[in-house]
Write a protein that binds this DNA or RNA. Sequence first.
DNA 1: TTTCAAATGCGAATGATTTGCATTTGCAAT
DNA 2: ATTGCAAATGCAAATCATTCGCATTTGAAA
Lengths: 151, 151
Amino acid sequence: MSCKIHAESYNEIIERNWPAGIKKTRQRMDIFEILYASENPISANDIFVAITRSHPQEMYAISTIYRNLLAFEKAGVITKHVLSTEDNAVYELSSRRHHHYAVCLLCHKKFPINACPLHIIEEDIDNSLPGFEITGHTLEVYGYCKDCKSE
Amino acid sequence: MSCKIHAESYNEIIERNWPAGIKKTRQRMDIFEILYASENPISANDIFVAITRSHPQEMYAISTIYRNLLAFEKAGVITKHVLSTEDNAVYELSSRRHHHYAVCLLCHKKFPINACPLHIIEEDIDNSLPGFEITGHTLEVYGYCKDCKSE
DNA sequence: TTTCAAATGCGAATGATTTGCATTTGCAAT
DNA sequence: ATTGCAAATGCAAATCATTCGCATTTGAAA
């Protein structure tokens, strides 16, 4: 039996993490909640489906999802990723502990990797681009996985 | 007065670098030539325009550009990048000395950075994902540039 | 040469994302 | 509380990069 401590409600979390200058609407809070709960980066459509499921009585427009993802992105709250092997963008909270992926160009499988170059980047940007404020980053490695290479 | 040594013709370069298992067609050689000549990552449409300009008498279909970019990508010859702030993909030779970019979420300006995490990635993949053969990678940093931050 | 799978041109389809506009809503100032 | 209004939303249509189907052409192996 697992023993998870439910330290704070979503309301408290939202209260604490809400980005300045972004009006708080029901739709935005719902989107934030889905992003907060998701282990992995998810697409606009994933969010749309998840919200439609958990709030069947409410009306949602997919365009609202896109508009708000853009607003969150501009606020530095989320980071948008586009894999070269997939046809839609995925999003995750910039603050979330994340993985980068090695992606096979043939079978398109994604393998999480440990390397995260954030420290190098920060150091480099401090030196060569002073004044730039980092909010997020993406890294993907492309190549051939073991199985595909042996063919 | 600059003094560039024109060591080898495109024909020789193509001869030397042509990926195995990819049939050599006029269209593919033209695309390769454009990619080879380009300092920066370029889009499918950029390539289409460049080829149309330099070979006005020849027929080209934009779909051929896309199909061949995909073929080159699968062969590991080129790497496809999609910036979260732009709406089309760009491509560059995987072997080319490249830059990564810090991208401003507000003005969308791109600032080349020096950091390239390839060594860390290679080391990590050797350990955690043995057998994976790296052909290329992408890295982008998102945030606010100095000018946009002061507003 | 001949042969044939693979590549191309062309035009139409796809589908993720964006946009215009009438309506609704959060919230700051009464 | 109520009001006023800029900002946000729902809806449907538009956009536009990318992909696909198919008839024709072509590279290169035999």
